[in-house]
Design a binder for these strands. Structure first.
Lengths: 98, 98
DNA sequence: ATTACCTTTGACAAAAATAGTCAACACATA
DNA sequence: TATGTGTTGACTATTTTTGTCAAAGGTAAT
């Protein structure tokens, strides 16, 4: 259930681009993009940015989704995932005021 | 500023164990433990659990710290780290009710 | 039924990140 | 000196991630 992949696939289709073309324009192998859109491989941040530009979409939200997915991946099957996120949030907020 | 490393070092000292002994009892190289305590290398969850047991400390909190650190590591220098954490939290909560 | 697209799949190799090993160092104290 | 402490860096091994490629299967039009 990769929400980022789904979103990027929708955006691509809305942009009227085939997988091949989108892959070519972003210098990536078609196979990889296919797998990424279906959540079989992880996106890289660089690719997300390239795709956002190609699809003329807002990149901020996509990057946030990208990061969120990365984080959730680290926490999958962890009993204390939620608690860990809370602690991380607290520390991040603190850090911002440094 | 590895809070997990600092905590585990304190716990070790409170347990009256030298780095060498703690390393031996957990089947790990001294050098690695030294580096982990000082944040130069990342802990593994397995080691955190072993150390918690060895030091007779509550492992839940330590695991939470461990996970939090792992998450923060992924988000370092990211502009939207906080937003990503919020999204991740929301998704994790949702997932729990599945 | 062949041409021209499309997406998906899997096998494989290359590259990068992580983890482990080891010997030596510097410091203190007995 | 001898023993115990923690630290460092160079090196290897292993695991994970990433990239490449060829082929398969689908659809639609000619």
């Amino acid at each position: 259930m990769s929400t980022l992949g789904l979103k990027l696939r929708e955006l691509r289709e809305q942009a009227g681009l085939s997988l091949r073309k989108a892959a070519m324009q972003t210098d990536i192998d078609v196979a990889i993009l296919s797998k990424m859109e279906r959540g079989e491989r992880k996106f890289s941040k660089e690719l997300v940015l390239k795709l956002a530009e190609l699809y003329k979409a807002n990149s901020d939200k996509l990057v946030i989704d990208f990061l969120s997915e990365k984080v959730l991946y680290e926490l999958e099957d962890e009993d204390f995932g939620l608690e860990a996120l809370k602690v991380a949030e607290k520390q991040l907020k603190y850090k911002k005021n440094k």
